[in-house]
Design a protein around this nucleic acid. Structure first.
Length: 426
RNA sequence: GGAAGGGUGGCAGAGUGGUUGAAUGCACCGGUCUUGAAAACCGGCGUAGGUUAAUAGCCUACCCAGGGUUCAAAUCCCUGCCCUUCCGCCA
């Protein structure tokens, strides 16, 4: 949620900032709702003030043993007027809130202009795609030949966009999780957390998935309105919902969590239907940071580096792009995508998305700290990024480390987690 | 699943329908004292919204959430959520 004061004071500038992401702010609607709100609020508060003072007088008169009947008759009409004004105010405020909760974050100044992912700008590249002297296979064929990846059985058990992993590949999958968690703990200073995979609607509102993106979620058939998490971002960022950190709290707070993620992939029919790229259920190691506002720009660079470090350890070529205005997520002010080299597709594919949300989520969450300078509560800045998506990393390892005989070498960094195994198959 | 008791400031914890935004303690901030610190003492200290040039004043709201009763609700009533204790069940 954007700062209502900012919108009020700088309506045109806000609209201009949002235009960069192709969002048209309804300036006229906001202006008229705001005028209405102001008038009704003042009227309501005046009535409340009058009620309060009259009620106090009644109390005093009663205590003094005076006759309160005349005072009571004066207050009759007031009660009705107040009820009407309060109802009206409630309605306008609801309309304002409904509209504002659907307004996305303003892209940072350095976010490039553009309409789609084609306009994202590469900021760096690491590693060189390997030259193959044989016909490369994709991970689906490799996995099938190794009897380690089975999409047909998964579709029997559940349906499309699920996978069964077995043997060395299942273990490789687990090894990736361990490597990532251990690296972020020991080398990047994150604290490991284990969180619920089922969340309530308030949590999803806090991070911005609701109210706009409900169709992307799996909702449980449960009267409590629970959802499966689409990312650990939701439960981990909500650790600080409705929280005011005291002055002694050490910032930044850095959490890493491994969770499954569940996405309905509504609207992506026909895209990436083969293999592990786009599944209804996948696992991810997620990095989340809560930082002081003045540190969030820097923190995004660091966090992105933490995710990149995993790819470097694995020896997987990647490039990092900054998302353009048209491609950036709803809650984000600035996002870097890290894209790993996928030999079978001969291109880089997203494996991590690292975002600075500034105070956009924190305002919805009421995640605050006490600013030691002013002694006053202030909104934190939140950031998160995949560090990394496990399924896609597995896919990248299989394809980039494949051998002519169909076997797959185990990257050195993973061998300790594989009981010293250096090769799968062959 | 059954029974009972709770949810109040950053934390702990009082609170009888009416000068209660809320006692008290801790924490925190300022001061006195001290070579310095601690202790003691004095003072201050909630959040949000509105109005405003104002982080001054004034007004409003907020005691888990949402409804209700009342001239007036932290206090009474209803619903929901959560927590604690006991019993039952269970990985």
């Amino acid at each position: 949620m954007l700062d209502p004061k900012l919108i009020r004071a700088n309506l045109e500038e806000v609209a201009q900032g949002l235009a960069k992401r192709g969002f048209t702010l309804d300036v006229e609607l906001l202006r008229s709702l705001e005028e209405e709100r102001k008038a009704i609020q003042i009227k309501t508060e005046n009535l409340q003030s009058e009620r309060n003072s009259r009620s106090k007088n009644i109390g005093k008169a009663k205590a003094a043993g005076e006759d309160i009947a005349p005072l009571m008759s004066q207050v009759e009409q007031l009660k009705q007027d107040l009820a009407a004004a309060e109802a009206e105010l409630h309605l306008v405020q609801q309309n304002l809130d409904d509209y504002l909760s659907g307004v996305p974050n303003i892209p940072a100044a350095e976010v490039p202009e553009g309409a789609s992912e084609d306009d994202n700008v590469e900021v760096r590249r690491w590693g060189k795609p390997r030259e193959f002297d044989f016909e490369v296979k994709d991970h689906v064929d490799l996995g099938a030949e190794l009897s380690g990846l089975d999409f047909d059985t998964a579709s029997k058990i559940t349906g499309a966009r699920f996978a069964v992993m077995k043997g060395g590949i299942a273990r490789l999958h687990r090894a990736l999780i361990q490597l990532m968690l251990d690296t972020h703990l020991a080398e990047h200073g994150y604290e490991e957390v284990n969180v619920p995979y089922i969340v309530n609607a308030d949590s999803l509102f806090g991070t911005g998935q609701l109210p706009k993106f409900e169709e992307d979620l799996f909702k449980l058939n449960d009267e409590r309105g629970f959802y499966l998490i689409p990312t650990a971002e939701v439960p981990v960022t909500n650790l600080l919902r409705d929280t005011l950190l005291d002055k002694e709290a050490t910032l930044p707070l850095k959490f890493v969590a491994h969770t499954p993620c569940f996405r309905s992939e509504a609207g992506s029919h026909g895209r990436d239907t083969r293999g592990m790229i786009r599944q209804h259920q996948f696992e991810k190691v997620e990095l989340v940071q809560f930082v002081k506002p003045e540190q969030s720009d820097e923190a995004l660079e660091a966090l992105t580096g933490h995710a990149e470090a995993i790819l470097q350890k694995l020896g997987l070529p990647y490039r990092t792009v900054i998302l353009c205005g048209g491609d950036i997520g709803f809650s984000s002010a600035k996002t870097y995508d890290i894209e790993v080299w996928v030999p079978s597709q001969n291109k880089y594919r997203e494996i991590s998305s690292c975002s600075n949300f500034r105070d956009f989520q924190a305002r919805r969450l009421k995640a605050r700290y006490r600013d030691p300078e002013t002694g006053k509560p202030a909104l934190l800045h939140t950031l998160n990024g995949s560090g990394l998506a496990i399924g896609r990393t597995l896919l990248a390892v299989l394809e980039n480390y494949q051998q002519a005989d169909g076997s797959v070498l185990v990257p050195e960094a993973l061998q300790p987690y594989m009981g010293g195994l250096t090769r799968i198959g062959g």
